[in-house]
Design a protein around this nucleic acid. Sequence first.
DNA 1: TGTTGATCTTGAACGTGTTCAAAATAATCT
DNA 2: AGATTATTTTGAACACGTTCAAGATCAACA
Lengths: 226, 226
Amino acid sequence: MVLPEVKAGKKSEETRSRILEAALAVFKERGFEKATMREIAVQAGVATGAAYYYFDSKDALVMAFYERSQAQMHPAIEAKLDHARTLEERLRSIISTKFEYFAPNRKLLAALSSHTDPDHPLSPFSTETAAIRLQDIDSFERAAKESGVKLPPSVAPYLGRLLWMYQMGLILFWVYDKSDSQRKTLLLYEKTLKMLILTLKVAAIPILRPLHRIAGELLAAVYEDG
Amino acid sequence: MVLPEVKAGKKSEETRSRILEAALAVFKERGFEKATMREIAVQAGVATGAAYYYFDSKDALVMAFYERSQAQMHPAIEAKLDHARTLEERLRSIISTKFEYFAPNRKLLAALSSHTDPDHPLSPFSTETAAIRLQDIDSFERAAKESGVKLPPSVAPYLGRLLWMYQMGLILFWVYDKSDSQRKTLLLYEKTLKMLILTLKVAAIPILRPLHRIAGELLAAVYEDG
DNA sequence: TGTTGATCTTGAACGTGTTCAAAATAATCT
DNA sequence: AGATTATTTTGAACACGTTCAAGATCAACA
């Protein structure tokens, strides 16, 4: 018995993607929570159980969307990173790509960011989303490294993860931003990015040394194994 | 028709609290998600529907626990604030009280912090939890004000809310902290508190002026109405 | 082609949170 | 007390996500 996802089959693959498309359509119409598996199945022209033959759960449908998104975004991000110069430009390459790509499905993204529990499959911190997360963190690491930003060795190793966290916070804010056209998020994005760059610039002044030391100790301990 | 919560009745009040106690017991035994309303009702010696006569939903049971906790913690916190001197001591008064009080129910707290959606009743950002949140923010404001910390007027008005956010982050980390005895949280608490105090101390140096300006603009815009 | 085994499809059934009409009980009024 | 109203209690029923045994379809091979 071969797992359906792995199989190269044609008909099967078509049914699977018909179910996924139906799901995304129903999610868009009703929102994730109000969407029912029965309606998704009907929309896809299959029995309820069929959806579960191709996807483990309702959550798994969102996960499939997330994985597909990442597969499309990641190469685009890597390409943009090639042509960016400053750290600011690099960070913008990553973050803006995500905003633009997810914009049509901003509300569906809530299903992916609404869970803080690292054990929940859809949490940004779960093992299920680990592959995507690590890929993203890599991009941030590359952005930082190649832009030649200088940081004390006690915090430098964590910069990729910290920048990923920063971006996650922006996205979270965005998902629930009720201001027109999410203008508050745009503001948060612009201002915090400026602050970040500025902070890195002044980070080297001697009076901030003790802060670096404590931050380094903290990061080492918190990230020690997980 | 008088709402049952408002009524001063004796028998009724007793049933209500028996249901709440049963709920907390079952939550503790099975965890919030695996606990069923039917088991809670049985444990309380009532029919399933009775739980819904006294509480709007399963979530509402957690909310009742949260409100009861706050009713007990808030006076304790205010009292401790009377005897604290430095800002650090004041912040410790608030935060440590919460950790100590919630420790026996740490995992149940996950039901309260697992939702980032401000529209979810149990979210720390929801209108349902607003009363508790505002009370807490008041404590932080008082702590900051009375300790005479000097901040530029562009960011000073937001200090209470920012400190509340900081504490919320600590609690969130704590709830999911899998290290033995949550030692990572303790570390995060100690180090970040030191960093916070240190940051406020050096905040006045001229080179950081631009950061204050941007931060002020950001906070004003983000908090403009909500 | 007929047979066998893998793949796919079905829809009934389960346990869940929740609702609600009906019944039981308590409180109030005449 | 008796009647009337308000409060409390019940448990069956609903819609949901999910499971699964049974059947239908397809692929490979003799």
